[in-house]
Design a protein around this nucleic acid. Structure first.
Length: 379
DNA sequence: ATGTAC
């Protein structure tokens, strides 16, 4: 068990098995972040990887002040899981691929008017609602591949006879705008708890959480509509957020950057588009700041992917995966950046958390079809 | 990550 929890100092540790890819750059960023004023404790998850200044795949606990920059621009980014009504038996992949390829990346404004409140329509970012966005965001049809705890699946409302839909997206331009404004004012020194600036950020942060969750619902709604089926939301969990929390009797601020909460019930942890996803139940979470990995974590920098892969693989080849799934990504850059080779093995990430006693695996799911971008603005 | 910068 101790093999999986790696202390770097009194206040800094990370969770990883011997087989887990951990970049020294990421470790460096973890330590640097731990030395920020008022930072108390920092834990890297097994999907830890370097980010822009601060690492991704980590939880940070501070007192007196909190750091919007640690949450990052995509406030509220997270995973939503839906149970669809599409039978696993007849996976008419050609039909699904065709239908989803015809879905525009953005919702029509008439569609949005029908599905949004008047208040939401007022948002300067409402155009983006129902759109996946770029980077590592996706909507993916999956099927249950292995069941570990049948009762828990039933309890959650999961049906192995039908496909699941996993949506990974965030607050789009809204979170970006909120962070930019606060960095302009407060720089990277954080916000002192209780000040008007802090209260204002937290209020906007809450709006971004709501916006991101609504976005995931609308993405699911639009995609399910496109393939003429229905779905039920089983869980929705954000992995970029900050919240007031008590840790070991100390009141403070828990930041999660690419780290899923381990104290809100079951969590879905996806691998790359060519790898499995795991539905897990958090068990003990006090060693990890009540957090878990949020995915596989990048292994390669975005800028190096195309160079490493384009001679060996064409975009068409990359639109099929080793697990037999299909990929809709009409972006020649993104299809390389998000290639399975660019990500850590999800099994090493999951093994690290099972080994350290953080989770129990409920089910393994495999990708059927991953939607990134159809290229069309509308259709 | 992102209504993508000079």
């Amino acid at each position: 068990m101790g093999n999986f929890i790696r202390p770097l100092s009194e206040r800094v540790s990370y969770i990883a098995s011997d087989d887990t890819w951990i970049e020294s750059n990421a470790i460096q960023q973890l330590s640097t972040t731990a030395s920020l004023p008022d930072m108390v404790q920092v834990v890297g998850m097994p999907d830890l990887h370097p980010g822009r200044g601060y690492p991704v795949g980590a939880a940070f606990f501070s007192v007196n002040r909190f750091y919007p920059a640690l949450v990052g621009n995509d406030i509220g980014c997270g995973m939503g899981l839906w149970q669809t009504a599409i039978p696993v038996k007849r996976p008419n992949l050609d039909k699904l691929e065709k239908r989803i390829s015809q879905m525009g990346d953005f919702a029509h404004s008439e569609w949005l008017q029908q599905h949004l409140s008047d208040e939401m329509m007022e948002s300067p970012f409402s155009d983006a609602l129902g759109s996946v966005g770029g980077g590592n965001h996706f909507a993916e049809l999956q099927q249950i591949d292995q069941i570990y705890h049948s009762d828990s699946l039933n309890h959650l409302g999961l049906n192995p006879q039908h496909l699941q839909l996993l949506v990974h997206s965030g607050s789009r331009g809204l979170g970006q705008a909120i962070l930019r404004r606060h960095i302009e004012h407060a720089n990277h020194s954080g916000l002192t708890a209780g000040t008007p600036e802090a209260e204002e950020y937290l209020s906007e942060h809450q709006q971004a959480l709501n916006f991101a969750e609504l976005n995931r619902r609308l993405i699911a709604h639009r995609l399910l509509e496109q393939i003429k089926t229905t779905g039920e939301c089983l869980l929705d969990i954000s992995h970029n957020l900050v919240e007031a929390t008590q840790i070991n009797g100390t009141d403070g601020w828990l930041h999660r950057k690419g780290a899923s909460p381990a104290n809100r019930g079951p969590v879905i942890i996806p691998g790359s588009r060519g790898d499995y996803s795991y539905l897990v139940m958090p068990t003990t979470s006090d060693i990890s700041l009540h957090s878990l990995a949020h995915g596989a974590g990048r292994k390669w920098m975005r800028t190096e992917c195309k160079g490493r892969l384009s001679e060996r693989f064409s975009p068409v080849q990359l639109s099929r995966t080793e697990l037999g799934s299909r990929v809709i990504c009409q972006d020649r850059q993104l299809i390389y950046e998000e290639a399975p080779q660019a990500y850590k093995s999800i099994d090493t990430v999951i093994d690290s958390m099972v080994g350290s006693g953080l989770i129990l695996i409920l089910a393994r799911l495999k990708p059927v079809l991953t939607y990134k971008t159809s290229g069309g603005k509308n259709e």
